[in-house]
């Protein structure tokens, strides 16, 4: 039986975490053992106590590493424990566990990385606000220009990858703008990437890590990170 690890990075998500875990525990896919792992990224709320009291499967980071470092912890865990597939699933209720089986299916069909996209298909009524959509479209075009691959939702944190990429991400995961940066690396390394439509919800609790003021600065930095990744990643690095 193949093993799947769902990586749930959580920074101050105590309000939504329990609901997500209950949802994830219900996920069943034929021929697969599905485990989840909450990464408590040095939360300052009661995320830690919550995990401890409710017998949640979690690891506790003693320093706040940010999203990249937190997710990488999950990949390391998956690598050390020989998981076949790793799936990133945000701890803020944006993602829908019903689509996990679709991601697994796509990995089964030979894709190395599968992205759950809110911008393709019409499954997701929520497509986030205008400015974010514009930013996303820009990054998508930039990646298309640099890699000749069209991916629509380049910042999606709902993704699955196979064993090769678990190993790669365990030791090469960008810390700052991990989703678009790692996507470019994966394409440049020559792995097969696919994107499937999923349903995404509006954040119900907490606030997004991006706001309007930071938005423009974020775009500049992320553009820089993508260009660096596309130049510096070589096939032999694999």
């Amino acid at each position: 039986m193949k093993k799947v690890l769902i990586i749930v990075p959580a920074y101050n998500e105590a309000e939504s975490l329990l609901k997500i875990v209950i949802e994830l525990e219900k996920v069943k896919v034929k021929d697969y053992q599905i485990d989840y792992l909450v990464i408590n990224d040095g939360s300052t709320d009661n995320t830690y106590e919550l995990c401890e009291e409710n017998n949640i499967s979690y690891v506790n980071l003693i320093n706040n590493l940010g999203i990249g470092g937190a997710v990488q912890t999950g990949y390391k865990y998956a690598y050390y424990h020989n998981y076949d597939i790793a799936i990133q699933f945000d701890g803020d209720n944006q993602h829908d566990a019903a689509f996990i089986k679709d991601l697994i299916e796509q990995i089964n069909e030979g894709n190395a990385l599968v992205i759950g996209s809110r911008y393709i298909g019409n499954k997701s009524a929520f497509k986030s606000n205008f400015i974010r959509r514009f930013g996303s479209r820009f990054l998508s075009s930039l990646i298309n220009l640099l890699t000749k691959h069209k991916i629509y939702d380049v910042t999606s944190g709902f993704r699955a990858c196979n064993q090769d990429l678990i190993k790669y991400f365990a030791f090469n995961y960008p810390s700052d703008y991990p989703e678009p940066d790692s996507l470019v690396q994966v394409i440049k390394l020559g792995y097969k990437v696919n994107e499937i439509p999923v349903k995404m919800h509006k954040r119900q609790t907490g606030k997004s890590s991006l706001n309007l003021v930071k938005g423009a600065y974020y775009m500049i930095k992320v553009t820089f990170a993508i260009i660096i990744a596309s130049i510096a990643t070589r096939k032999e690095a694999k």
Partner: peptide, 11 residues
Amino acid sequence: TSLTQEVAILK
């Protein structure tokens, strides 16, 4: 970063 990750996994 890698120290923090390894400690968390080890625990």
